[in-house]
Write a protein that binds this DNA or RNA. Structure first.
Lengths: 264, 264
DNA sequence: GGATTAGCACCTAGGTGTCAAGGT
DNA sequence: ACCTTGACACCTAGGTGCTAATCC
Protein backbone atom coordinates (compact mmCIF):
# COMPACT_ATOMS: atom_id res chain seq x y z
CA UNK A 1 0.00 0.00 0.00
CA UNK A 2 2.59 2.56 1.06
CA UNK A 3 5.73 1.41 -0.69
CA UNK A 4 7.91 4.38 0.04
CA UNK A 5 10.67 3.70 -2.43
CA UNK A 6 12.85 6.31 -3.98
CA UNK A 7 11.82 6.90 -7.57
CA UNK A 8 14.34 7.64 -10.28
CA UNK A 9 13.40 11.29 -10.55
CA UNK A 10 14.72 12.53 -7.23
CA UNK A 11 14.66 16.20 -6.58
CA UNK A 12 18.25 16.12 -5.42
CA UNK A 13 19.20 18.58 -8.10
CA UNK A 14 17.04 21.19 -6.44
CA UNK A 15 18.82 20.58 -3.15
CA UNK A 16 21.90 22.71 -2.81
CA UNK A 17 24.27 23.29 0.08
CA UNK A 18 24.68 27.01 0.36
CA UNK A 19 25.81 27.54 3.91
CA UNK A 20 26.53 24.20 5.54
CA UNK A 21 26.63 24.13 9.30
CA UNK A 22 28.85 21.50 10.84
CA UNK A 23 27.86 19.73 13.98
CA UNK A 24 29.30 16.78 15.80
CA UNK A 25 32.74 17.14 17.23
CA UNK A 26 35.30 17.78 14.60
CA UNK A 27 38.83 17.80 15.68
CA UNK A 28 40.64 20.38 13.64
CA UNK A 29 39.84 23.51 11.74
CA UNK A 30 42.01 22.38 8.88
CA UNK A 31 40.10 19.16 8.53
CA UNK A 32 36.81 21.01 8.74
CA UNK A 33 37.60 23.30 5.88
CA UNK A 34 38.76 20.40 3.77
CA UNK A 35 35.45 18.60 4.10
CA UNK A 36 33.39 21.70 3.71
CA UNK A 37 35.00 22.39 0.39
CA UNK A 38 34.54 18.81 -0.73
CA UNK A 39 31.01 17.94 0.29
CA UNK A 40 29.64 21.44 0.29
CA UNK A 41 30.38 21.94 -3.37
CA UNK A 42 30.47 18.47 -4.89
CA UNK A 43 28.25 16.18 -2.89
CA UNK A 44 24.78 17.26 -3.89
CA UNK A 45 25.44 19.55 -6.77
CA UNK A 46 24.06 18.31 -10.07
CA UNK A 47 27.24 17.44 -11.89
CA UNK A 48 29.05 14.84 -9.84
CA UNK A 49 26.33 12.98 -7.98
CA UNK A 50 25.09 10.13 -10.06
CA UNK A 51 24.00 7.75 -7.33
CA UNK A 52 22.87 4.34 -8.40
CA UNK A 53 20.70 1.99 -6.40
CA UNK A 54 22.16 -1.38 -5.65
CA UNK A 55 20.52 -4.22 -3.82
CA UNK A 56 21.00 -2.76 -0.37
CA UNK A 57 23.30 0.17 -0.77
CA UNK A 58 23.95 2.99 -3.13
CA UNK A 59 27.36 4.29 -3.96
CA UNK A 60 28.79 7.09 -5.99
CA UNK A 61 29.84 5.75 -9.34
CA UNK A 62 32.27 8.55 -10.19
CA UNK A 63 36.02 8.04 -10.02
CA UNK A 64 36.91 7.76 -6.38
CA UNK A 65 40.15 7.91 -4.53
CA UNK A 66 42.01 4.61 -4.27
CA UNK A 67 41.41 4.48 -0.53
CA UNK A 68 37.65 4.39 -1.19
CA UNK A 69 37.14 2.01 -4.11
CA UNK A 70 36.84 -1.11 -1.98
CA UNK A 71 34.80 0.53 0.78
CA UNK A 72 31.40 -1.01 1.45
CA UNK A 73 28.85 -0.46 4.17
CA UNK A 74 26.00 -2.65 5.42
CA UNK A 75 23.03 -1.41 7.38
CA UNK A 76 22.62 -2.83 10.87
CA UNK A 77 19.18 -3.87 12.11
CA UNK A 78 18.09 -4.13 8.51
CA UNK A 79 15.12 -6.42 9.32
CA UNK A 80 13.81 -3.86 11.81
CA UNK A 81 14.25 -1.00 9.35
CA UNK A 82 12.33 -3.00 6.75
CA UNK A 83 9.54 -3.69 9.19
CA UNK A 84 9.18 0.03 9.82
CA UNK A 85 9.56 0.89 6.16
CA UNK A 86 6.70 -1.39 5.18
CA UNK A 87 4.41 0.59 7.47
CA UNK A 88 5.89 3.93 6.43
CA UNK A 89 8.56 4.98 8.91
CA UNK A 90 7.93 8.12 10.97
CA UNK A 91 10.57 10.00 12.95
CA UNK A 92 9.66 12.46 15.67
CA UNK A 93 11.17 15.92 15.43
CA UNK A 94 11.13 18.22 18.47
CA UNK A 95 12.35 21.68 19.31
CA UNK A 96 15.04 20.29 21.62
CA UNK A 97 16.05 17.53 19.19
CA UNK A 98 15.01 13.87 19.09
CA UNK A 99 17.11 10.80 18.35
CA UNK A 100 16.15 8.51 15.50
CA UNK A 101 14.71 5.09 16.14
CA UNK A 102 15.84 2.75 14.80
CA UNK A 103 19.30 4.24 15.22
CA UNK A 104 21.25 4.52 11.98
CA UNK A 105 24.13 2.05 12.35
CA UNK A 106 26.48 0.64 9.75
CA UNK A 107 29.23 -1.93 9.51
CA UNK A 108 32.19 -0.92 7.36
CA UNK A 109 34.50 -2.95 5.14
CA UNK A 110 37.40 -2.27 2.81
CA UNK A 111 38.86 0.80 4.48
CA UNK A 112 42.61 1.21 4.56
CA UNK A 113 43.37 0.32 8.20
CA UNK A 114 46.12 2.92 8.42
CA UNK A 115 44.38 5.78 6.61
CA UNK A 116 42.19 8.37 8.33
CA UNK A 117 38.53 8.84 7.52
CA UNK A 118 35.63 10.98 8.64
CA UNK A 119 32.10 9.56 8.73
CA UNK A 120 29.03 11.72 8.38
CA UNK A 121 25.33 11.79 7.67
CA UNK A 122 22.91 14.16 6.09
CA UNK A 123 19.29 14.02 4.94
CA UNK A 124 17.92 14.82 1.50
CA UNK A 125 14.24 15.47 0.74
CA UNK A 126 12.70 12.54 -1.11
CA UNK A 127 10.50 14.93 -3.10
CA UNK A 128 9.25 18.51 -3.08
CA UNK A 129 5.95 17.66 -1.43
CA UNK A 130 4.24 18.21 1.86
CA UNK A 131 2.23 15.34 3.30
CA UNK A 132 -0.82 14.80 5.45
CA UNK A 133 -1.97 11.60 7.08
CA UNK A 134 -5.49 10.57 6.08
CA UNK A 135 -6.80 8.70 9.10
CA UNK A 136 -9.89 7.36 7.34
CA UNK A 137 -7.77 5.55 4.74
CA UNK A 138 -4.74 5.12 7.04
CA UNK A 139 -2.40 6.44 4.39
CA UNK A 140 -0.29 9.44 3.54
CA UNK A 141 -1.59 11.87 0.95
CA UNK A 142 0.09 14.80 -0.75
CA UNK A 143 -0.88 18.08 0.90
CA UNK A 144 0.87 20.49 -1.43
CA UNK A 145 4.32 21.70 -2.34
CA UNK A 146 7.15 21.47 0.16
CA UNK A 147 7.78 24.25 2.66
CA UNK A 148 10.95 26.32 2.26
CA UNK A 149 13.96 24.04 2.57
CA UNK A 150 15.55 23.89 6.01
CA UNK A 151 19.13 25.04 6.53
CA UNK A 152 21.08 21.98 5.34
CA UNK A 153 23.24 20.45 8.01
CA UNK A 154 25.68 17.60 8.17
CA UNK A 155 26.24 15.46 11.22
CA UNK A 156 29.85 14.41 11.65
CA UNK A 157 30.30 11.24 13.65
CA UNK A 158 31.88 12.39 16.92
CA UNK A 159 34.69 9.83 16.69
CA UNK A 160 35.91 11.47 13.47
CA UNK A 161 38.58 11.57 12.31
CA UNK A 162 39.75 8.03 12.99
CA UNK A 163 41.71 5.31 11.27
CA UNK A 164 40.11 2.71 9.02
CA UNK A 165 41.06 0.03 11.50
CA UNK A 166 39.19 1.88 14.26
CA UNK A 167 36.03 2.29 12.15
CA UNK A 168 36.02 -1.32 10.98
CA UNK A 169 36.53 -3.05 14.29
CA UNK A 170 33.00 -2.42 15.51
CA UNK A 171 29.59 -1.21 14.37
CA UNK A 172 29.48 2.54 13.80
CA UNK A 173 26.45 4.06 15.52
CA UNK A 174 24.96 7.48 14.91
CA UNK A 175 23.10 7.54 18.20
CA UNK A 176 24.18 11.09 19.01
CA UNK A 177 22.39 12.44 15.95
CA UNK A 178 19.22 14.39 16.72
CA UNK A 179 16.42 15.69 14.53
CA UNK A 180 14.72 19.02 15.14
CA UNK A 181 12.02 21.12 13.54
CA UNK A 182 13.46 24.31 14.98
CA UNK A 183 14.71 26.28 11.99
CA UNK A 184 16.76 28.44 14.35
CA UNK A 185 18.35 25.49 16.15
CA UNK A 186 21.55 26.42 17.91
CA UNK A 187 22.67 22.96 18.99
CA UNK A 188 23.93 21.69 15.66
CA UNK A 189 21.05 19.25 15.23
CA UNK A 190 19.68 18.18 11.87
CA UNK A 191 16.87 20.54 10.85
CA UNK A 192 13.92 18.96 9.04
CA UNK A 193 10.45 20.07 8.00
CA UNK A 194 7.67 18.17 9.71
CA UNK A 195 5.29 16.29 7.38
CA UNK A 196 8.03 15.98 4.76
CA UNK A 197 9.84 12.87 3.62
CA UNK A 198 13.59 12.34 3.85
CA UNK A 199 16.29 9.92 2.78
CA UNK A 200 19.26 9.59 5.15
CA UNK A 201 22.67 9.51 3.51
CA UNK A 202 25.93 8.19 4.86
CA UNK A 203 29.30 9.55 3.73
CA UNK A 204 32.78 8.12 4.12
CA UNK A 205 35.38 10.81 3.62
CA UNK A 206 39.03 9.95 3.11
CA UNK A 207 41.52 12.29 4.76
CA UNK A 208 44.57 12.42 2.52
CA UNK A 209 48.03 12.91 3.92
CA UNK A 210 49.75 16.16 3.01
CA UNK A 211 51.85 14.27 0.51
CA UNK A 212 48.87 12.39 -0.90
CA UNK A 213 46.44 15.20 -1.57
CA UNK A 214 47.82 16.04 -4.99
CA UNK A 215 45.63 13.80 -7.12
CA UNK A 216 42.81 16.29 -7.47
CA UNK A 217 40.89 14.40 -10.12
CA UNK A 218 39.43 11.88 -7.70
CA UNK A 219 36.54 12.32 -5.30
CA UNK A 220 37.70 11.79 -1.73
CA UNK A 221 34.35 10.66 -0.36
CA UNK A 222 31.87 7.89 -1.00
CA UNK A 223 28.16 8.10 -0.32
CA UNK A 224 25.77 5.33 0.73
CA UNK A 225 21.99 5.40 0.75
CA UNK A 226 19.72 2.71 2.17
CA UNK A 227 16.22 3.04 0.72
CA UNK A 228 14.68 1.23 3.70
CA UNK A 229 15.75 4.09 5.99
CA UNK A 230 13.50 6.67 4.36
CA UNK A 231 11.00 8.29 6.72
CA UNK A 232 8.46 11.03 7.24
CA UNK A 233 9.32 13.67 9.82
CA UNK A 234 6.45 14.25 12.27
CA UNK A 235 5.86 16.10 15.52
CA UNK A 236 3.46 13.38 16.69
CA UNK A 237 3.01 9.88 15.35
CA UNK A 238 0.28 9.57 12.74
CA UNK A 239 0.14 5.86 11.93
CA UNK A 240 -0.81 3.97 15.08
CA UNK A 241 0.98 0.85 13.87
CA UNK A 242 4.23 2.83 13.79
CA UNK A 243 3.65 3.86 17.40
CA UNK A 244 3.09 0.25 18.39
CA UNK A 245 6.22 -0.93 16.58
CA UNK A 246 8.30 1.80 18.25
CA UNK A 247 6.95 0.83 21.67
CA UNK A 248 7.62 -2.82 20.97
CA UNK A 249 11.18 -2.32 19.74
CA UNK A 250 12.62 0.73 21.54
CA UNK A 251 13.94 -0.14 25.03
CA UNK A 252 13.25 3.39 26.25
CA UNK A 253 9.55 2.97 25.48
CA UNK A 254 9.25 -0.19 27.55
CA UNK A 255 6.95 1.61 29.95
CA UNK A 256 4.21 1.61 27.33
CA UNK A 257 4.27 -2.08 26.56
CA UNK A 258 1.34 -4.33 27.40
CA UNK A 259 2.89 -7.77 27.40
CA UNK A 260 6.40 -8.46 28.59
CA UNK A 261 8.28 -9.57 25.51
CA UNK A 262 11.79 -8.46 26.25
CA UNK A 263 13.40 -10.17 23.29
CA UNK A 264 14.46 -7.09 21.34
CA UNK B 1 48.26 17.40 60.57
CA UNK B 2 48.35 15.48 57.34
CA UNK B 3 49.86 17.97 54.95
CA UNK B 4 50.25 15.74 51.95
CA UNK B 5 52.51 17.92 49.89
CA UNK B 6 54.99 16.66 47.39
CA UNK B 7 58.48 16.83 48.82
CA UNK B 8 61.46 17.71 46.71
CA UNK B 9 62.84 14.21 46.67
CA UNK B 10 60.22 12.49 44.58
CA UNK B 11 60.88 8.99 43.50
CA UNK B 12 59.96 9.83 39.94
CA UNK B 13 63.31 8.64 38.80
CA UNK B 14 62.50 5.14 39.93
CA UNK B 15 59.32 5.15 37.86
CA UNK B 16 59.94 4.06 34.33
CA UNK B 17 57.56 3.42 31.46
CA UNK B 18 58.59 0.10 30.02
CA UNK B 19 55.49 -1.11 28.26
CA UNK B 20 52.94 1.68 28.08
CA UNK B 21 49.36 0.64 27.41
CA UNK B 22 47.18 3.22 25.75
CA UNK B 23 43.57 3.63 26.65
CA UNK B 24 41.01 6.23 25.75
CA UNK B 25 39.96 6.54 22.15
CA UNK B 26 42.83 7.46 19.93
CA UNK B 27 42.02 8.19 16.39
CA UNK B 28 44.85 6.94 14.27
CA UNK B 29 47.57 4.37 14.45
CA UNK B 30 50.05 6.85 13.10
CA UNK B 31 49.27 9.32 15.84
CA UNK B 32 49.41 6.59 18.47
CA UNK B 33 52.89 5.50 17.53
CA UNK B 34 54.06 9.08 17.50
CA UNK B 35 52.97 9.65 21.08
CA UNK B 36 54.13 6.31 22.29
CA UNK B 37 57.61 7.07 21.10
CA UNK B 38 57.55 10.51 22.66
CA UNK B 39 56.07 9.99 26.10
CA UNK B 40 56.99 6.37 26.44
CA UNK B 41 60.66 7.11 26.25
CA UNK B 42 61.04 10.72 27.37
CA UNK B 43 58.25 11.58 29.78
CA UNK B 44 59.33 10.00 33.01
CA UNK B 45 62.80 8.84 32.25
CA UNK B 46 65.44 10.48 34.37
CA UNK B 47 67.16 12.66 31.82
CA UNK B 48 64.55 15.01 30.40
CA UNK B 49 62.02 15.40 33.18
CA UNK B 50 63.04 18.22 35.46
CA UNK B 51 59.64 19.26 36.73
CA UNK B 52 59.50 22.33 38.89
CA UNK B 53 56.75 23.19 41.31
CA UNK B 54 55.06 26.52 40.82
CA UNK B 55 52.35 28.02 42.90
CA UNK B 56 49.59 25.91 41.46
CA UNK B 57 51.01 24.12 38.50
CA UNK B 58 54.20 22.45 37.45
CA UNK B 59 55.61 22.52 33.97
CA UNK B 60 58.54 20.98 32.21
CA UNK B 61 61.31 23.50 32.08
CA UNK B 62 63.18 21.94 29.19
CA UNK B 63 63.14 23.47 25.71
CA UNK B 64 59.68 22.94 24.32
CA UNK B 65 58.21 23.26 20.91
CA UNK B 66 57.09 26.77 19.97
CA UNK B 67 53.45 25.67 19.97
CA UNK B 68 53.78 24.81 23.68
CA UNK B 69 55.78 27.62 25.25
CA UNK B 70 52.76 29.78 26.04
CA UNK B 71 50.52 26.93 27.11
CA UNK B 72 49.15 27.14 30.64
CA UNK B 73 46.55 25.12 32.50
CA UNK B 74 44.47 25.92 35.57
CA UNK B 75 42.76 23.37 37.77
CA UNK B 76 38.97 23.58 37.93
CA UNK B 77 37.23 23.16 41.30
CA UNK B 78 40.47 24.07 42.99
CA UNK B 79 38.77 25.03 46.30
CA UNK B 80 37.11 21.62 46.46
CA UNK B 81 40.37 19.82 45.68
CA UNK B 82 42.06 21.79 48.45
CA UNK B 83 39.33 20.91 50.91
CA UNK B 84 39.87 17.23 50.17
CA UNK B 85 43.64 17.57 50.18
CA UNK B 86 43.64 19.08 53.66
CA UNK B 87 41.92 15.94 54.94
CA UNK B 88 44.06 13.64 52.81
CA UNK B 89 42.23 12.77 49.60
CA UNK B 90 41.20 9.15 49.07
CA UNK B 91 40.11 7.68 45.74
CA UNK B 92 38.23 4.40 45.51
CA UNK B 93 39.64 1.76 43.19
CA UNK B 94 37.48 -1.19 42.13
CA UNK B 95 37.86 -4.20 39.91
CA UNK B 96 35.41 -2.77 37.36
CA UNK B 97 36.95 0.72 37.51
CA UNK B 98 35.84 3.77 39.49
CA UNK B 99 35.74 7.42 38.42
CA UNK B 100 37.64 10.02 40.40
CA UNK B 101 35.86 12.50 42.56
CA UNK B 102 36.49 15.36 42.32
CA UNK B 103 36.82 14.93 38.57
CA UNK B 104 40.11 16.15 37.14
CA UNK B 105 39.22 19.17 35.01
CA UNK B 106 41.42 21.88 33.54
CA UNK B 107 41.06 25.11 31.65
CA UNK B 108 43.63 25.65 28.92
CA UNK B 109 45.28 28.80 27.61
CA UNK B 110 47.92 29.69 25.05
CA UNK B 111 47.39 26.86 22.58
CA UNK B 112 47.72 27.61 18.88
CA UNK B 113 44.05 27.63 17.82
CA UNK B 114 44.85 26.00 14.48
CA UNK B 115 47.33 23.37 15.69
CA UNK B 116 46.34 19.88 16.81
CA UNK B 117 46.98 18.58 20.30
CA UNK B 118 46.36 15.46 22.32
CA UNK B 119 45.58 15.68 26.02
CA UNK B 120 46.34 12.89 28.44
CA UNK B 121 46.75 11.91 32.07
CA UNK B 122 48.81 9.45 34.00
CA UNK B 123 49.58 8.81 37.65
CA UNK B 124 52.97 8.64 39.31
CA UNK B 125 53.62 7.15 42.75
CA UNK B 126 54.35 9.87 45.30
CA UNK B 127 56.82 7.62 47.05
CA UNK B 128 57.81 3.95 47.31
CA UNK B 129 55.76 3.30 50.43
CA UNK B 130 52.69 1.36 51.36
CA UNK B 131 50.29 3.00 53.81
CA UNK B 132 47.87 2.01 56.51
CA UNK B 133 45.26 4.14 58.20
CA UNK B 134 45.62 4.31 61.97
CA UNK B 135 42.08 4.78 63.23
CA UNK B 136 43.12 5.60 66.78
CA UNK B 137 45.16 8.58 65.64
CA UNK B 138 43.07 9.26 62.52
CA UNK B 139 46.15 9.47 60.38
CA UNK B 140 48.04 7.59 57.71
CA UNK B 141 51.16 5.71 58.73
CA UNK B 142 53.79 3.98 56.64
CA UNK B 143 53.18 0.23 56.43
CA UNK B 144 56.25 -0.80 54.49
CA UNK B 145 57.76 -0.64 51.06
CA UNK B 146 55.53 -0.30 48.02
CA UNK B 147 54.07 -3.33 46.30
CA UNK B 148 55.32 -4.15 42.79
CA UNK B 149 54.53 -1.25 40.47
CA UNK B 150 51.35 -1.59 38.44
CA UNK B 151 51.48 -1.73 34.65
CA UNK B 152 51.80 1.98 33.81
CA UNK B 153 48.95 3.29 31.72
CA UNK B 154 48.11 6.58 30.13
CA UNK B 155 44.60 7.86 29.66
CA UNK B 156 44.16 9.77 26.42
CA UNK B 157 41.31 12.27 26.52
CA UNK B 158 38.69 10.78 24.19
CA UNK B 159 38.33 14.02 22.21
CA UNK B 160 41.98 13.77 21.15
CA UNK B 161 43.29 14.79 18.76
CA UNK B 162 41.63 18.17 18.46
CA UNK B 163 42.57 21.73 17.59
CA UNK B 164 43.76 24.22 20.15
CA UNK B 165 40.66 26.29 19.56
CA UNK B 166 38.47 23.27 20.43
CA UNK B 167 40.37 22.55 23.65
CA UNK B 168 40.35 26.18 24.80
CA UNK B 169 36.71 26.99 24.23
CA UNK B 170 35.49 25.01 27.23
CA UNK B 171 36.71 23.21 30.35
CA UNK B 172 38.40 19.92 29.55
CA UNK B 173 37.02 17.16 31.76
CA UNK B 174 38.56 13.75 32.39
CA UNK B 175 35.31 12.24 33.59
CA UNK B 176 35.70 9.09 31.52
CA UNK B 177 38.89 8.16 33.35
CA UNK B 178 38.54 5.21 35.73
CA UNK B 179 40.81 3.80 38.40
CA UNK B 180 41.15 0.08 39.04
CA UNK B 181 43.10 -2.21 41.33
CA UNK B 182 42.83 -5.10 38.87
CA UNK B 183 46.35 -5.69 37.64
CA UNK B 184 44.96 -7.69 34.73
CA UNK B 185 42.46 -5.03 33.71
CA UNK B 186 41.33 -5.40 30.13
CA UNK B 187 39.30 -2.20 29.81
CA UNK B 188 42.15 0.25 29.49
CA UNK B 189 41.59 1.74 32.94
CA UNK B 190 44.33 3.21 35.08
CA UNK B 191 45.83 0.50 37.28
CA UNK B 192 46.85 1.57 40.80
CA UNK B 193 47.91 -0.17 43.98
CA UNK B 194 45.51 0.26 46.87
CA UNK B 195 46.95 1.88 49.99
CA UNK B 196 49.53 3.72 47.89
CA UNK B 197 49.78 7.43 47.16
CA UNK B 198 49.66 8.95 43.69
CA UNK B 199 50.14 12.28 41.94
CA UNK B 200 47.99 12.81 38.81
CA UNK B 201 49.79 14.34 35.85
CA UNK B 202 48.34 16.16 32.88
CA UNK B 203 50.09 16.23 29.50
CA UNK B 204 49.53 18.46 26.49
CA UNK B 205 51.06 16.93 23.39
CA UNK B 206 51.54 18.95 20.23
CA UNK B 207 50.90 17.09 16.99
CA UNK B 208 53.30 18.49 14.41
CA UNK B 209 52.39 18.70 10.74
CA UNK B 210 54.38 16.51 8.40
CA UNK B 211 56.26 19.58 7.29
CA UNK B 212 56.83 20.79 10.84
CA UNK B 213 58.16 17.69 12.53
CA UNK B 214 61.75 18.25 11.51
CA UNK B 215 62.94 20.22 14.54
CA UNK B 216 63.82 17.21 16.63
CA UNK B 217 65.59 19.09 19.39
CA UNK B 218 62.41 20.28 21.05
CA UNK B 219 60.05 18.36 23.31
CA UNK B 220 56.59 18.20 21.78
CA UNK B 221 54.70 17.83 25.06
CA UNK B 222 54.26 19.81 28.24
CA UNK B 223 53.40 18.34 31.62
CA UNK B 224 51.36 19.87 34.44
CA UNK B 225 51.07 18.68 38.01
CA UNK B 226 48.72 20.05 40.65
CA UNK B 227 49.92 19.10 44.14
CA UNK B 228 46.43 19.48 45.59
CA UNK B 229 45.23 16.54 43.46
CA UNK B 230 47.40 13.97 45.21
CA UNK B 231 45.48 11.10 46.76
CA UNK B 232 45.68 7.69 48.38
CA UNK B 233 44.12 4.80 46.44
CA UNK B 234 41.78 2.74 48.64
CA UNK B 235 39.23 -0.03 48.21
CA UNK B 236 37.11 1.44 50.99
CA UNK B 237 37.26 4.88 52.55
CA UNK B 238 39.44 5.06 55.66
CA UNK B 239 39.02 8.63 56.90
CA UNK B 240 35.38 9.20 57.78
CA UNK B 241 35.69 12.91 57.09
CA UNK B 242 36.63 12.09 53.49
CA UNK B 243 33.48 9.98 53.19
CA UNK B 244 31.38 12.83 54.51
CA UNK B 245 32.95 15.34 52.13
CA UNK B 246 32.37 13.02 49.18
CA UNK B 247 28.73 12.54 50.18
CA UNK B 248 28.30 16.27 50.60
CA UNK B 249 29.89 17.23 47.29
CA UNK B 250 29.25 14.38 44.82
CA UNK B 251 25.76 14.61 43.25
CA UNK B 252 25.67 10.84 42.76
CA UNK B 253 25.98 10.31 46.51
CA UNK B 254 23.03 12.56 47.30
CA UNK B 255 21.12 9.58 48.65
CA UNK B 256 23.41 9.45 51.65
CA UNK B 257 23.01 13.07 52.71
CA UNK B 258 21.33 13.99 55.96
CA UNK B 259 20.30 17.58 55.42
CA UNK B 260 19.24 18.92 52.06
CA UNK B 261 21.89 21.41 51.07
CA UNK B 262 21.78 21.24 47.31
CA UNK B 263 24.19 24.09 46.69
CA UNK B 264 27.01 22.09 45.17
C1' DG C 1 -9.35 20.77 12.23
C1' DG C 2 -4.70 19.87 11.77
C1' DA C 3 -0.23 20.45 13.76
C1' DT C 4 2.69 21.59 17.62
C1' DT C 5 4.22 22.07 22.37
C1' DA C 6 5.21 21.30 27.42
C1' DG C 7 4.81 18.55 31.41
C1' DC C 8 4.63 13.98 32.85
C1' DA C 9 5.23 8.96 34.31
C1' DC C 10 8.04 5.43 33.09
C1' DC C 11 11.89 3.58 31.40
C1' DT C 12 17.45 2.70 30.42
C1' DA C 13 22.11 3.41 31.80
C1' DG C 14 25.25 4.12 35.01
C1' DG C 15 27.65 6.69 39.20
C1' DT C 16 27.32 6.72 44.74
C1' DG C 17 28.47 4.85 49.55
C1' DT C 18 26.71 1.00 52.63
C1' DC C 19 26.95 -3.30 54.57
C1' DA C 20 27.66 -8.02 55.13
C1' DA C 21 30.54 -11.47 53.68
C1' DG C 22 34.82 -13.25 52.02
C1' DG C 23 40.03 -13.39 51.61
C1' DT C 24 44.73 -13.64 53.24
C1' DA D 1 43.51 -7.84 61.95
C1' DC D 2 43.28 -5.73 57.85
C1' DC D 3 41.83 -5.41 53.34
C1' DT D 4 38.74 -6.54 49.47
C1' DT D 5 34.50 -7.88 47.15
C1' DG D 6 29.64 -7.98 45.52
C1' DA D 7 24.83 -7.05 46.05
C1' DC D 8 22.06 -3.26 46.99
C1' DA D 9 19.20 1.09 47.62
C1' DC D 10 19.41 5.51 46.04
C1' DC D 11 20.76 8.87 43.22
C1' DT D 12 21.85 11.63 38.32
C1' DA D 13 21.13 12.04 33.46
C1' DG D 14 18.56 11.45 29.74
C1' DG D 15 15.50 8.77 26.11
C1' DT D 16 10.24 7.17 25.49
C1' DG D 17 5.21 8.01 24.08
C1' DC D 18 1.06 9.99 26.41
C1' DT D 19 -1.97 13.69 27.32
C1' DA D 20 -3.88 18.13 27.55
C1' DA D 21 -3.31 22.59 26.19
C1' DT D 22 -2.15 25.68 22.64
C1' DC D 23 -1.30 27.69 18.18
C1' DC D 24 -2.73 28.77 13.47
Amino acid sequence: MQQHLLEGNDSENAFCYSDPYWNGSASSNTVMKEIEETVGTHSVSNKSTKTIQQETISTTSAGEHTKLTNVTATLEMKPLWEEFNELGTEMIVTKAGRRMFPTFQVRLFGLDPAADYMLMMDFVPVDDKRYRYAFHSSSWVVAGKSDPISPPRIHIHPDSPASGSQWMKQVVSFDKLKLTNNQLDDNGHIILNSMHRYQPRFHVLYLPNKSDSIDAGKQNFKTFMFPETKFTAVTAYQNHRITQLKIASNPFAKGFRDCDSDDW
